[in-house]
Amino acid sequence: MTTALDVCAITKRFGALKAVDEVSFRVSRGEIMGFIGPNGAGKTTTMRICSTLELPDTGDVQVDGVSVTENPREARRRIGFMPDSYGAYANTSIDDYLDFFARAYGLRGAARTAVIERSIEFTSLGDLREKYIDSLSKGMKQRLCLAKTLLHDPAVMILDEPAAGLDPRARVELRELVKALAGMGKAILLSSHILSELAEMCTTITVIERGQVRGSGAVETVAQGVTSGQRIFVRALAGVDALQRRLLELPQVSKVHAEREGLAFDFLGDERALSELLANLAASGLGLIEFAPKAVDLEDVFLSLTEGKLQ
């Protein structure tokens, strides 16, 4: 696939704080990359650099082959940026809002009308087009912002927390819209705290913490990287603390962490060793209730790669 967004070793300092530290990753056309990290990890700063709103101290970003530092105006034509804080004008209807931004992107006459119609149709805002933005629900405002972002048909879309504050229905609708955009060949970089949402949407992820990339690539590849051996979930009547003490005494057990009412851990041994581990736990008088292999999900990846570790 063709690379549409190439982030190359960008660094950004704010005074003494290194907000972004040598961050690199790539997003191809048709790819949805989830950009994950705790608050203050540097996600928004990275996205703002990609959108030409901030300037990296070092490094560069290529948007569809255009450098954001050398040719920001040209890069902007290829980027659709949807910020986390939604921008709306007072006393403005949906039609007027889209008309303004279409004009701002240099669209004229029939072309402008066609583009607005297409965006409204894609985001299903047709019935509300005369309504003032102030009166729209959060979900509708997000749709409108997405419609605005689509007006100039960008190759790369950067969506900062698009699902924040949306109700479940609006989230599902947004997910479908994003998938449709990827189907249209757009490269999408999307940040969110709702990992289950990202898991359903993203083909690749980049995990960032304290300004540094902790892992990047296809979800399965990154997941394999964070687990050593196989991951097991275990639950016992004796409770989490006693179970954790016992697990940490056993060989080939690592990365023990709390999950639901039990614990999850990585086990390095083979099937025979796993059988012995199970027997050992069963014999330890902890009252074993559940012992099962567990698929690594995005939450596990996130917790393993960031500061959520217990071990």
Partner: peptide, 17 residues
């Protein structure tokens, strides 16, 4: 001032204007 308050400043900056 409203461009700042209504978070539209960034949207203006990254448009073709």
């Amino acid at each position: 001032s409203a461009e700042w308050d209504e978070n539209t400043y960034d949207l203006l900056i990254i448009s073709n204007l």
